[in-house]
Amino acid sequence: MRYEKCVPCSRTIGWVGLVVNIVLTAMKAFVGLVSGSQAMVVDTMYSAKDVVTSMLVIIGMSVSDKPLDEQHPYGHGKIEFVLSLIISVVFLLVTGYLLVHAIQILVDPERHRTPHIIALWAAVVAVAVNIFMYAYAKCVAAEVNSPMVRTLAKHSHSDATASAVVAGGIIGAHYLGMPWLDTAIAVFETLDLLYLGGGVFWDAYKGLMDRSIDTPLRGKIIALARSVEGVVEVKQLRSRHVGQEMLVEMVIGVDDALSVEEAHLICEAVKTEISRKLAHIGALHVSAEGCAKAAPASARRNAGSDDLVSELDG
């Protein structure tokens, strides 16, 4: 972060992105319907997806940050999964409808119509706006090192690509005498959107099913725990996502000659180590069990942890 201005910049970019994408969604939908461009209507879904994603992030920040209460002792994090699931289902249905519609038109040559030239104009404008947003978000992401803003930049980039493809299709339909090209691109883009939407759905589903966090990350946690002085082994590791956060429970093995007090101190040390080194740890529960043979911690430290992941995963 080299400039003072970067701080307000990083705070406003989320809202700027939301507003820009709402405007783009409206513009693409409007122009798509007026001009009769299938691809432009489908392209709307890209911007709509960004709008929804931004909103989910905002909701995620306000609702899932609500403090624990008696009814929700584990917090409100799962609201994000519930919303994502609902929205991704709606998204998939709409995209699926568009796909069916586009295919129906594609197979019926009589319905091939060259879209009005306004669609080309709108697509070019959308590309320009998205490139602008990409440059902006890229700068913010680099200066404040925010993964969320980096995602925004990535979305702007892919949106620009999608709109450029639409523009190409309309050029083809208009100037190369291929009126079917617009519809073909609509089919192609709906497939891409179905893939993207499927990813969102799968993530939400995994979150709701308390699926464990990714294997590499689990390996990292185990390695971190083992690096702590006094930890003999990681006996059990259970993890799940709640919203943006991870909840982790682990059982470590310590020398059974140690007192309860000493074991507790080791557990605390593990907690400190992990939450210091890893982001998004919502809750970390570490308990200790005695284990018969206490090998020197330094000897175990060098052992690869990857092979342990599978046997320890709970």
């Binding site: 409007f30 122009v31 007026v34 306004i118």
Partner: peptide, 20 residues
């Protein structure tokens, strides 16, 4: 640049409404 883009977006809407 932002102002120009805003004008372009506005012009797109204006064109669309004109077409309607």
């Amino acid at each position: 640049l932002a102002a120009l883009l805003a004008v372009l977006v506005f012009a797109t809407f204006a064109w669309g409404f004109y077409l309607l």
